[in-house]
Design a protein around this nucleic acid. Structure first.
Lengths: 210, 210
DNA sequence: CCAAACTAACTGATTAGTCAGTTTTTTAAA
DNA sequence: TTTAAAAAACTGACTAATCAGTTAGTTTGG
């Protein structure tokens, strides 16, 4: 559970009013997320985004310095959706096994709901520059830390029989498996509904942990 | 183990001599694979590739119709490296558990050796058009089928105690985990050497299967 | 000698980001 | 409340640069 703390990447603006920045950026994000997930980041022009957001290109570039800033905002927005859903599912008063299963279920369900956006987010992370990518990956680490803590609870209470170095791997696996549901959606749905997928994954996890 | 057979995507050429095509394309691939993994596909210009390959742009475009063709050739080339290494490791005369572990080890080792290229390959798959991507994903399926067969052997001989629908997932997991070693290399090497990673993954796999 | 392979210079289309000027909103003095 | 001035937000035409792919003509090797 590495807790490296670095400061967040900040998207610059030349508009003073923070409320206005928030509102306008939400408009930009809403427009961009849709077009990006249809055509991809590179194939989308800044004019298209501005138009879809109902504002002028010049205006848009006052709320954002570069096209890449828009991508960063979009990725963070999508990531927040997932984070919120996961944290909402976490309950304190259940057994470690129930708790981690509940978390996994919530994660898989939210990823299923916004799978297009999840694909976009991970696909285009590579188009972010070093700083923005580092900042984004930190968010990713928050999610994994959360899952690691849940698994650790099970070890501490003697229910989970796994080695200490597996904790990180298993937490990471759960994250990756949720992403894979999004990425391999079309080939997986031949074999599984999301419910069946969650059930099978839950079983495998229980086998592994106990 | 879905066996959908579709024809391979063919990269067109206007050069007649097949030997020459093979030789020149190898030069293009060698040049492109290096530049792509340094700067990414989009940031690389066709002129750069041609220059690094020691040929004229015009010449290059006689061995290839579009820039995307180069990416496709590069992805296939990298994939072949992995496929060869995996098939070379497969032995018939060992127990199912030993066999799948041997396969997994070979896979993780080759991915470790060419991890930059693996990252490139999966990162840029999205930049291929529908046809080329479909063709590439078929190669991916070959790898998974191979692993599925190995797992199936263990089930059939009664050694592996897992449900039938887990076979696909576990085969896929092994593939994904090898890719994740490449993608998360820099954060994983804080915690694991490749040998340690393979050992821990082997243990987890054994727990899961038996 | 001639077909195959190669070259250099070119083109046509694209696009992220800018900037000089306009409109709207806020502030504050009368 | 009116008004004037200052600040903030917005506009859209513009540009400077880039780059995938072409082609008319030249060289090479069998």
């Amino acid at each position: 559970m590495s807790e490296t703390q670095t400061e967040e990447y900040i998207v610059a603006t030349s508009v003073k009013n923070p409320k206005r920045v928030e509102k306008r950026r939400a408009e930009i994000i809403d427009a961009a997320v849709k077009i990006f997930s249809e055509k991809g980041y590179h194939a989308t022009t800044t004019k298209e985004i501005a138009e879809a957001a109902g504002m002028n290109v010049g205006t848009m570039f006052q709320y954002v310095k570069t096209k890449q800033d828009i991508l960063y905002l979009v990725c963070c927005h999508i990531h927040s959706l997932i984070e919120k859903a996961l944290y909402a599912a976490t309950s304190e008063n259940s057994t470690p096994l129930e708790a981690i299963k509940k978390d996994m279920t919530a994660l898989f369900e939210i990823v299923d709901q916004v799978s297009d956006y999840v694909v976009l987010m991970y696909q285009e992370t590579a188009s972010l520059d070093k700083e923005a990518r580092r900042s984004f990956l930190q968010r990713e680490q928050r999610l994994r830390n959360h899952l690691e803590k849940q698994i650790q609870r099970g070890i501490d209470s003697g229910v989970f029989k796994i080695s200490q170095e597996s904790v990180f791997l298993i937490a990471d696996d759960i994250l990756v498996q949720s992403q894979m549901w999004a990425f391999r959606r079309w080939s997986l749905t031949n074999k599984f509904t999301i419910e069946k997928y969650i059930a099978t994954r839950s079983e495998l996890l229980e086998t592994l942990l106990t």
